[in-house]
Design a protein around this nucleic acid. Structure first.
Lengths: 144, 144
DNA sequence: TATTGTTATACTCTATAACTATA
DNA sequence: TATAGTTATAGAGTATAACAATA
């Protein structure tokens, strides 16, 4: 049990840092820009290829209804497309469109621009630290 | 400009990992437990001592109205107390109560318990990595 | 005039519940 | 029965606008 205080400190430190970052990121949202859940869903499609709404909801750990709403917004703007699965009539396969991938990679989006600007004030070792910790955060979320 | 792609990758990786973690953390919310903004505000009072609502709103980068709502909830449960500033009648000084600090440090709260459980699956170097990156995330948020 | 704080209202993201269609 | 998806409704957390009180 001698390790517990350290684990607790890590938890509180992460909560504070992450909370601050998320609130700030939400504020720089602009028209036409991708929202946070949209960015997550698109990045997931980019990394993992086409998927279904419920599969995406499972890996993103939100309800299928919430994922449906997010995908609906993306589809309306032409960032994803859905094709009915010929083998299973209940399912629809979602894939990112070229426009969607472009939006995801668009370095001139307001949020990405500001994030990149802020990150450019970091040293290269700090950037490597941040990059290395991203998968740890994912693993942490998956294990909660 | 050869560094830009790396900065962009860091940004996307962080967005995905953090988004997942925040959504998951919100789900384990329970009655009487501290919410994410409440945890942030209390941790800030714990680290920085008594403060005013607008000063807290500024450092947490949210509107004074939002901070007022958060503090109202904390005050109703006796986790913070507000005393009118005798020198400036507009201001009220907010301080964390013993009960508030206890709630912040309570290892048996549902969220902290689950977080600690998940973190116990990490190696010591990984924990150090996570701990080291928390202040970087704060600095990042402050520079956006 | 500027600042602190409150009240009223609305938006975003998420949830649960109830439903339809398909397996 | 079980699963994929939709529609309806509600809650948390945030925002902006308008206001009162104090500096």
């Amino acid at each position: 049990m001698g390790q517990d205080p350290e684990v607790h400190d890590v938890a509180v430190a992460l909560l504070v840092g992450i909370g601050l970052l998320v609130r700030r990121l939400r504020q720089v949202q602009r028209d036409g820009d991708l929202t946070l859940p949209e960015t997550s869903a698109l990045a997931r499609l980019d990394r993992g290829g086409p998927s279904t709404a419920s599969a995406l909801a499972r890996v993103e750990q939100i309800s299928p209804q919430s994922m449906g709403a997010t995908l609906g917004g993306l589809e309306a703007r032409g960032f994803v497309e859905r094709r009915p699965d010929p083998l299973d009539g209940r399912q629809a396969v979602i894939s990112a469109t070229d426009a969607g991938l472009q939006a995801l990679g668009n370095r001139r989006s307001v949020r990405t621009e500001l994030l990149a600007q802020a990150l450019s004030g970091f040293t290269r070792p700090e950037l490597k630290q941040l990059m290395a910790v991203a998968p740890l955060l994912e693993r942490l979320a998956e294990n909660i």
